[in-house]
Amino acid sequence: MKNVDLEHPSVIPVEHWHALENGLIQCDLCPRECKLHEGQRGFCFVRGRKNDQMWLTSYGRSSGFCIDPIEKKPLNHFLPGSAVLSFGTAGCNLACKFCQNWDMSKARDMDRLLDQADPEALALAAKKHQCASVAYTYNDPVIFYEYAIDTAKACRAHGIKNVAVTAGYISEAPRKEFFEWMDAANIDLKAFNERFYEKLTGAKLQPVLDTIEYVANETDCWLELTTLLIPGENDSPSEIEAMSQWIIQHCGDEVPLHFTAYHPDYRMMDNPPTPKSTLEMARNIAMKAGLKYVYTGNVIHADGQATYCPNCQQKVIGRQYYEIYDWHLDHGKCANCQTPIAGVFEEQPGTWGNKRLPIKLTKE
């Protein structure tokens, strides 16, 4: 573990900040660039200033650990059917009014981080439970950057893959090291309009697009994208068309895109749930635009959960919820026409299925 505050072992000094001439210090981890007085915390709450140094206050502490199917992240083209050890901490650097994990991402009470595990313990737990990967998720791993990277290094040493589930709101310099240690990422492209980002997330769109383009073109990290469609906010056919065209032009036509259904939550309880027809419409638009792999989530939709060969249109992976029931891949190629299917595949899928298994690491 890194050097720590001996009175508070979860508090560690961090990099990616600099002093300003006016006596403030600026956090350089994400585009918010919080400027802090002594004793003040940043927008994310878990990073703050103490003794003229930036500190992370949640190192080695988690809101819980759980073994999930990898498809729940969602990742449909990265080791399908495998088990992934998922965990998060507290806080977030976005302010999404529709947050589906608000009890963790909006947490300001560090006492709710009852589970503890250093990076090596996490790697060993993943190995013990036969997880193919560890996912940094629930809240955004960008804000527990050092804890995520140290854990990723420990996992790599034990042959465990690393998965980031993130909004992609990270600055250019730290972005490079973060994704160097990630084997797969699902980046949340929340909308394709600036008004949505400013109004409903308190952030900006362009830094997210920069991150997506960087991961797609300059790393070996497998990339998938997710857009939660909210009625009346980001679900217009023209916006979905524009977003699909941007993905193709800047990232290629093989990046899987997931459209998921919104349900009223947090500070947007009055918005209606997303109709299944909206998800189907979005999927059709994206596929017509030229994206090869488009999925629907949070609804029962067999076609929207399955993977099809972009050449012969045969189903190569059939899914029911998060469980694989049909498999027609031959060394990562369509068994029917031998067209390569983009992704990271084993010869046979994993068998974890729909199970969700909470685990305790404190005493392991």
Rank of each mutant, 00 (worst) to 15 (best):
M1W: 05
L6Y: 11
L6P: 09
E7M: 05
A19I: 14
L20W: 03
R32P: 05
C34K: 02
H37Q: 13
R41A: 11
R49M: 12
N51C: 10
W55E: 15
S62F: 05
S62W: 02
F65W: 14
I67K: 00
E71F: 07
K72L: 08
K73M: 04
N76F: 14
L79P: 06
P80M: 04
G81W: 06
A83N: 00
V84M: 12
C92D: 13
N93E: 01
F98E: 03
C99Q: 03
W102G: 00
D103K: 15
M104K: 06
K106N: 01
M110H: 12
L114V: 15
L122E: 05
A123Y: 05
A125Q: 06
K127S: 11
K128S: 13
H129Q: 14
Y136D: 08
N139M: 03
F144K: 03
D150Y: 12
T151N: 04
I160V: 15
K161D: 13
N162P: 07
N162H: 08
T166M: 07
E172K: 14
E177V: 13
F178C: 08
M182N: 00
A185G: 01
N186S: 03
D188R: 06
L189P: 04
L189Y: 07
K190S: 09
F192I: 11
F192W: 06
E194L: 09
R195I: 14
L200H: 12
L209C: 13
L209E: 05
D210I: 02
D220V: 09
E224I: 03
E224G: 02
L228G: 00
I230M: 07
I230G: 06
E233P: 07
N234M: 01
S236Y: 09
S244D: 01
I247C: 03
I248Q: 10
H250N: 13
E254T: 14
P264E: 04
R267I: 08
N271R: 13
P272I: 04
P273A: 15
T274H: 00
P275W: 08
P275H: 15
N284I: 00
M287A: 01
L291D: 03
L291N: 00
L291T: 00
N298W: 05
H301K: 00
G304D: 09
Q305E: 13
Y308T: 08
N311L: 11
V316G: 11
V316P: 11
G318Q: 02
E323Y: 08
E323L: 04
Y325Q: 05
H328Q: 05
D330P: 07
H331Y: 04
H331G: 11
K333P: 13
Q338H: 15
G343F: 04
G343L: 00
Q348G: 04
G353H: 04
R356P: 11
I359K: 08
K363C: 06
E364G: 15
